[in-house]
Every structure is written in structure tokens, then in C-alpha cells.
């Protein structure tokens, strides 16, 4: 039984005026075990990125955590309540505690500094090493993320690298303080598939070698199948289903998860098989329907769905927020 490194309970995040905020996350709960990968999957506007920003304390201006807990356990076994950190404590935790990689490596790297300077900055902030030792550690880290000719590449600028190489630099920067938890927000979405395959392989290897947990945010069910141990499916700011990866793909219990799986073109299609799209589109957060937010697009919707529904355990370790999930399964 491995220990839980991150527990999120009833997380509620709003934007705008305190009196009448736009609620971007409604009662989000999940847990991540040490050394495992939890995939947060959802389409645009599902709230998956807001969740990661709330964890990192990087919500944009106007965004605030209105309710809920986010408990994180660092490598020394100390528990931190991420909702109640002072700015100083939070800065100290970023890097050795939790760190993050983003979708677009070009806009997350500073074009005016060499990649070595940017990776080394993490060491400057969090460790007491002299310049020579920092450089040595930086080069080792670049080797670890399989950048060829690391000793020379350390002095290059981001624009001199390809997209795949820049994402490796981002990973090196996120990993150099040996974080307990890596939050990866669509880290391969901007990359070509053959490069994506390289990066996913690299992340899996680093996770095993360094014993790190990963919160992997993606919209791609193929990537989920490949990377995740556990999956939380999000829709319109709420988790609608949570399960182990095999269980989720074998027996999806929420109609949205089923719809999502039926919308993906099979890489190995059978002739004349038609995709079954989900009708309509995601409602704006300001115009969510009463009760279940998915009901207007759901083939099983009925008046009772307006009364709302919360995430409940339908089978051991398998949670769904649907009054129909018995019939669905």
C-alpha cells in the first residue's frame, strides 16, 4: 500500500468579484499515490489547467480558492496544506516539492538567457552550490533528459533548439531539484507524434528512476492510456468520473466518458465504422444548467438530472457523478 502524496478535497475556484464569482472548479476531489501517475483528462474549459494552477499557487489575478483542501506530502514526509501557504513557504516548495512543465516550451523559456542559466537558476534558488558545481549538475541533468552534446548545448539559447529539445530543457528545469510531484500540463500537445513518443518514454523512465509522482494533464485519451495509473475525467469544472486506468477504459460509467471514447478515431479502424460524436458543445461557465452540467448533451438525461449529482463510489475505487451509472455500466 503506497502512501498518498497529494489529496485534493472539495476544491472550489472562482474568478472575478467575490460577491458573484464565475466558478471555474466545483467540488474537485482526487488523490495521487507516491510514484504513480494521475491523468486529469478533459476538453477545453473542463478546468484541468485551472486545477494545476491552483496547486502551484499560480492562479491568474482575480482567481481565488474559495473552498477545499489541497494536502501535499514532500519527500521528507512533511504535510503541507497548499491552500494556506505563505508566499515564502510556497516558493521554497516549488522545485524540490512540486514543479510544473507547460504545453508551450517556447513561451515558458526566457529567450534572453541560455538554457544552462535557466536550469541553473533553480539550483541557485534552492541549493547552496558554487557556480562550477551548478554547471556540472546542469549538464548532468541535460544528459539525463537525453540532450545530445549536453556539455555544448548548455550554452545555447532556446531559439537555437527544436520544439522537442526545448521540452526536454523544460523537463530538466522541472526535475533538477528532484521534485516529489511533477505537474505536466499538456506537455506533448504542441509536439509532433514521433517527438511526443520520445518525450513520453523519457518521462516514464525518469519517473521510475527518480521515484516521482506525476499529475498529467491532457485531452488525449491515447496519452492517458499510455501514461496513467489513475484517471480523473473532468467536464465543465467538475470531476465526473475517477477510476484506475484499466477500469476506466473497460467499464466507463459516466456518459461523458463513454461519449469521449466513442469520439476518438480508432487508430486501427474497422471499415464503415462511424464515429459517434457528442452532440452540442460545452456550455460557458456562466451559463451552466441546473444540476448535472452534462445533461443537455447526454443521451440518458431525464428531469431527475436537474437535481444534481455528486461523485459517488459505484464499484471499488471507481467513482462516477451520474444517477444512471448503474445502467451505463
Amino acid at each position: 500500500m503506497s502512501e498518498t502524496i497529494l489529496t485534493v478535497e472539495g476544491l472550489r475556484v472562482g474568478f472575478g468579484r467575490k460577491a458573484s464569482p464565475v466558478v471555474a472548479l466545483r467540488d474537485v476531489s482526487f488523490a495521487l499515490k507516491r510514484g504513480e501517475t494521475l491523468a486529469l483528462v478533459g476538453e477545453s474549459g473542463s478546468g484541468k489547467s485551472v486545477t494545476s494552477l491552483a496547486l502551484m499557487g499560480l492562479l491568474p489575478p482575480g482567481g481565488q480558492v474559495m473552498a477545499g483542501r489541497m494536502d501535499f506530502t514532500d519527500r521528507a514526509g512533511t504535510r503541507h496544506d497548499l491552500t494556506a501557504l505563505t508566499p515564502t513557504r510556497r516558493r521554497a516548495l516549488r522545485g524540490p516539492g512540486l514543479s510544473m512543465i507547460f504545453q508551450e516550451p517556447m513561451s515558458s523559456l526566457n529567450p534572453l538567457f541560455t538554457v544552462g542559466d535557466q536550469i541553473g537558476e533553480m539550483l541557485l534558488l534552492h541549493e547552496t552550490l558554487d557556480a562550477k558545481a551548478r554547471r556540472r549538475r546542469t549538464i548532468e541533468m541535460l544528459e539525463l533528459v537525453e540532450i545530445p552534446g549536453a556539455a555544448n548545448r548548455v550554452d545555447t539559447y532556446p531559439h537555437e533548439m527544436s520544439g522537442g529539445m526545448r521540452q526536454r530543457v523544460m523537463i530538466a528545469m522541472a526535475m533538477i531539484c528532484n521534485p516529489a510531484l511533477l505537474i505536466a500540463d499538456e506537455p506533448t500537445t504542441a509536439l509532433d507524434v514521433t517527438i511526443q513518443a520520445q518525450i513520453l518514454d523519457l518521462m516514464r523512465r525518469l519517473q521510475k528512476d527518480l521515484g516521482m509522482s506525476i499529475l498529467f494533464i491532457t485531452h488525449d485519451m491515447g496519452v492517458v492510456a499510455e501514461m496513467a495509473d489513475e484517471v480523473a475525467v473532468m467536464y465543465a469544472g467538475a470531476v465526473v468520473e475517477r477510476a484506475g486506468v484499466l477500469d476506466l477504459f473497460d467499464r466507463p460509467r459516466h456518459p461523458y466518458t463513454r461519449g469521449l471514447l466513442a469520439s476518438i478515431p480508432d487508430p486501427d479502424p474497422k471499415p464503415d465504422e462511424r464515429l459517434v460524436p457528442i452532440p452540442g458543445s460545452v456550455p460557458p461557465l456562466t451559463m451552466l444548467p441546473k444540476g448535472c452540467a452534462f445533461a443537455p448533451r447526454c443521451p440518458l438525461a431525464e428531469p431527475a438530472c436537474e437535481r444534481g449529482v455528486s461523485l459517488t463510489e459505484k464499484a471499488p475505487g471507481h467513482f462516477a457523478a451520474c444517477i444512471h451509472s448503474e445502467e451505463v455500466a
Partner: peptide, 17 residues
Amino acid sequence: SAIPRPDPRAARNRETL
């Protein structure tokens, strides 16, 4: 072989470029 298959049981032995 680089396409991630939406099947967690799919073999992950691919030809990585």
C-alpha cells in the same frame, strides 16, 4: 507506432525515432 493508442493494454513496444 508513435500514435498513442486509446487502449491501456496495448503493447508499448514501439519503434521510436
